[in-house]
Nucleic acid binder design. Structure first.
Length: 868
DNA sequence: ATCGATAAGATCGAC
DNA sequence: TCTTATCGAT
């Protein structure tokens, strides 16, 4: 090789390396491993996303140039000089891709698959920042499901579906199955609907079609029944032109398997495939990845077997464990340096996870300091636990931290309630991620169903959903008759409705059906003539839905607000997509969106969520509540070693969310599902090296605490099982003026009357309590709920301010009168209609520009007077 | 057809 | 405890 070439190649490597100088050597190794199968085992907080982004950037900028001897063209003296100068000056070489890249990918040659839409968005965002808008924006970054939808929108007709197929969510799915149960007269006690759905889902995951299943011998009558249901289910979806979530993957895999032309098209297009969170992929998803990557075999998967927590949902950890066997010649790179947590937190995580057998094995390390020990607090009950969290948060705030630095994690959603209640009373702004999603609300789904049948008149499921919502005198019997007629003629139900007069058996409801159909036609016409948001507004009005909600009082109001939000979300969609915005496009977006996607970390409030939702996130201060046997690990997992390992991984995920400090808590008694239980501490606690733990406990458990609690003892009770004890205590509390009690009240003051009641054996836990409370935690009986959307105003400043001042005093200033224009943090601008002073506060009735009339308490709402 | 009552059931939950 | 689903009465 000519010297000039040799020098050029060496300089080229040096140049490319310098573009990724901020990475550590192992990370850089991953970035330069562009060709062939690559497994990146990325521990929690090891800069995984950074590696992904840089690797994709490398593929687009330099292709496989690093470490290669290939050249895009013979080297000239001038080239060498340019490169020398660029390296010496540490500057970018002009037109570097053309000069020195080796077969670089165009952005659309890269397919990056992530776990959530949010993760996909972040990936794109960072690629854009790194490569510029044009290059970065054109990379395909999406979830499995949206990637499949995009392929199917192009090729659905090849497998007998319309391009405009509808996506059924689990709710729609359930409706179809229930319908089938009715038709086939299946007893749901013999075979629960859920079980049938689960089995069908697992068939699809194993790529078995309804015919495949029906063709095999059955183990028993149940299996035969499931097969029958599966066949009927698949038939209905096909007839409706609909796919459920499993179908999106299933049909895409089938398409790629059976259609060589389609397969080659996508294999040529996606020269590089990257899959994030590979430990949580399913069998069908594995097949999809293998098929897509089949052309070049350039497949890179990133994951952490220790963070596989979705087995219950079909994820199979074998995908990651067997990667090297399935993709021969695979390279494996381990990212074990953690940039997130302190050593103590990390070691706690390591000491827990090392008890799992089925893992690849890796040990995270950090060069951060030890930090504080991991805190473990033993509470008397869940209120005390909440109060302790509030105390700690208060301390952190006084030290300058903000609310959004804190997260409370729990095993199941049911645990959020006591904490929520406590936070609301204390005026601590919080926000709950997960639970009921916006697009899952009944009213939103109803209106979406109207939209769906306009886009796809064959969608019988959605039609059934809204044909009598609001009530139109079209009852079950009529609907069933239409269903039968449609089935016998092999046409959609809407087709029958269009010609009611032809069917004497529909005589009775004919008038109502005609009215409904007329409205439907009108909406169809409007859908093409009006802008999207205005059209949705019309759907809400002309369907009679608005009138129905108006007729209800309190409850209808919030639901109308939700519909208002729906209208604004479609407006946002329309604004973002300009010319390309369509009704079906919006519905698709809605179908594939999750709550976590809309989670933004800007709002200053404490985040509350399940550990599952917390995957991929990090917070300076993390509280993990309910570290109890029977809660975490959960009751169901205790007796099965495999499930136990999954719980342990979940625990590992929880611990590794924390950057600075980690607070674990256990409660001696806990009310869950209406019953008070005493759970022993979680087994995972004893797996943590005791030297890493800092133990504290409720004052009531230390002897003198019990006496203190009895001071409020009018509510103490001997009733076993919390029912009367609990509600009595909390009611009594609300009515009394506990605000007045002296500072330094113990965290548990709130509920002590209840907890110290009967059969507690104090002192069984030797350790001394550290007095952390400075009073605010227990005192705020009269704070108004901060609400779910967590207006920050009142709570924050109170917390940071004088601890035992009554909160309502500080906000005394503003007074409102009719006619004032106000600005509300959450609801926007509005005009005061009426102001009624009451007990030192003021009920203000406001006409908001966007959300209608609302009543708020002047001192507690995040409200500001703009003009008088 | 619609409302109210009562019973059952209840992890984790992306798309 | 709390929600959701189904049934039976009007």
């Amino acid at each position: 090789m000519a010297d000039i070439t040799k020098e050029y190649l060496a300089l080229r490597d040096q140049y490319i390396e310098s573009r990724f100088a901020r990475l550590n050597p192992v990370q850089r190794q991953a970035v330069f491993a562009t060709e062939g199968p690559l497994l990146i085992l990325a521990g929690a907080g090891s800069g995984k996303t950074t590696v992904l982004v840089n690797r994709i950037a490398n593929i687009i900028r330099f292709g496989s140039a690093h470490g290669s001897t290939e050249l895009p063209r013979p080297v000239t003296e001038a080239d060498l000089n340019d490169l020398r100068n660029a390296v010496a000056a540490g500057r970018d070489l002009p037109r570097e891709t053309a000069y020195l890249a080796v077969r670089p990918a165009r952005p659309w040659n890269v397919l990056a698959i992530t776990f959530t839409n949010k993760a996909a968005g972040e990936l794109k965002e960072r690629l854009r920042a790194m490569l510029g808008d044009t290059l970065g924006g054109d990379v395909n970054a999406s979830t499995f499901h949206s990637a499949c939808v995009r392929m199917l929108r192009r090729d659905a007709e090849r497998i007998g579906f319309p391009k405009s197929f509808t996506i059924y969510d689990s709710d729609d799915q359930q409706r179809v199955i229930k319908q089938i149960y009715k038709d086939l007269m299946i007893d749901d006690k013999f075979l629960p609907v859920k079980s049938a759905i689960g089995q069908i889902s697992s068939f699809k995951d194993k790529l078995l079609s309804a015919e495949d299943v029906a063709g095999e011998p059955f183990a028993n009558t149940k299996a035969q029944l499931v097969s029958k249901i599966y066949t009927a289910y698949a038939g209905r979806l096909k007839a409706a032109g609909a796919m459920d979530f499993d179908d999106l993957i299933f049909h895409t895999v089938k398409l790629l398997q059976n259609d060589a032309e389609a397969r080659e098209y996508y294999q040529n297009r996606f020269r590089y495939v990257v899959v994030d969170e590979y430990q949580d992929t399913s069998i069908a998803q594995f097949h999809l990845v293998r098929l897509l990557a089949g052309g070049t075999n350039n497949v890179c998967v990133v994951g952490d077997d220790d963070q596989s927590i979705y087995k219950f949902r079909g994820a199979t950890i074998e995908n990651i464990l067997n990667f090297e066997k399935v993709f021969t010649g695979a390279k494996t790179i381990r990212l074990e340096q953690n940039y997130r947590s302190t050593a103590n937190i990390l070691n706690a995580a390591n000491s827990v996870i090392k008890n799992n057998m089925g893992r690849k094995g890796k040990t995270l390390w950090t060069d951060h300091g030890d930090g504080e020990k991991v805190h473990h607090y033993t509470a008397t009950n869940e209120q005390d636990e909440a109060s302790h969290i509030a105390d700690v948060i208060g301390e952190h705030l006084r030290e300058g931290a903000s609310l959004k630095d804190h997260a409370v994690l729990y095993r199941m959603n049911a645990q959020s309630n006591p904490i929520e209640t406590y936070f609301a009373r204390a005026g601590i702004p919080y926000r709950i991620v997960g639970g009921q999603r916006f697009f899952d609300r009944k009213e939103v789904k109803d209106i979406n169903s109207y939209l769906a049948i306009i886009v796809n008149p064959r969608d019988d499921v959605r039609l059934r959903r809204i044909i009598n919502e609001p009530a139109r005198k079209i009852g079950m019997t009529t609907i069933e008759k239409i269903g039968e007629l449609a089935a016998s003629k092999g046409v959609p139900m809407m087709e029958i409705i269009a010609h009611v007069r032809d069917y004497p058996e529909l005589q009775r409801a004919a008038a109502a059906l005609e009215r409904f159909y007329e409205m439907y036609r009108e909406l169809c016409d409007l859908s093409v003539s009006e802008p999207l948001d205005q059209f949705v507004g019309d759907v809400i009005a002309k369907s009679g839905y608005e009138a129905m909600l108006k007729a209800m009082k309190e409850e209808g109001e919030t639901r109308r607000e939700n519909l208002g939000q729906l209208v604004s979300s479609i407006k946002t969609y329309a604004d973002q997509n300009g010319e390309d915005a369509t009704l079906s496009g919006f519905l698709e977006e809605v179908a594939l969106i999750s709550d976590l996607d809309s989670y933004d970390n800007d709002a200053d409030s404490v985040t509350m969520m399940t550990i599952h939702s917390a995957k991929g996130l990090e917070f300076p201060y993390v509280f993990v509540v309910g570290m109890e046997d029977g809660i975490f690990p959960g009751e169901m997992a205790k007796y099965n070693e495999e499930d136990m390992e999954e719980e342990r991984r979940l625990c590992y995920v929880a611990i590794t969310r924390a950057k600075k400090e980690l607070y674990l808590s256990t409660s001696r008694t806990r009310m869950i599902f209406g019953q008070t239980r005493r759970n022993p501490p979680s087994a995972f606690l004893s797996e943590i090296d005791p030297g890493l733990l800092d133990e504290t406990q409720s004052p009531e458990l230390t002897g003198y605490g019990g006496g203190f609690g009895a001071g409020y003892g009018s509510y103490s009770t001997n009733v076993p099982g919390g029912r009367s004890g609990y509600s009595g205590a909390s009611r009594g509390y609300l009515n009394s003026e506990y605000n007045a009690h002296p500072r330094g009240g113990f965290g548990g003051g709130y509920s002590s009357g209840f907890a110290s009641g009967g059969h507690e054996s104090p002192n069984s836990y030797g350790g001394r309590h550290q007095v952390q409370s400075t009073g605010f935690g227990s005192g705020y009986g009269r704070s108004r709920s901060a609400g779910n959307t967590a207006p920050a105003g009142a709570g924050t400043s109170t917390l940071a301010g004088a601890p035992s001042a009554a909160p309502q005093k500080k906000a005394a200033a503003a007074s409102y009168a009719a006619g004032d224009i106000v600005e509300h943090r959450v609801f926007g601008r509005g005009k005061v209609l009426k102001a009624t002073p009451i007990a030192g506060d003021c009920i203000v009735e406001i006409q908001f520009d966007r959300v209608g009339v609302k009543k708020t308490m002047a001192n507690y709402a995040p409200l500001k007077k703009v003009e008088e």
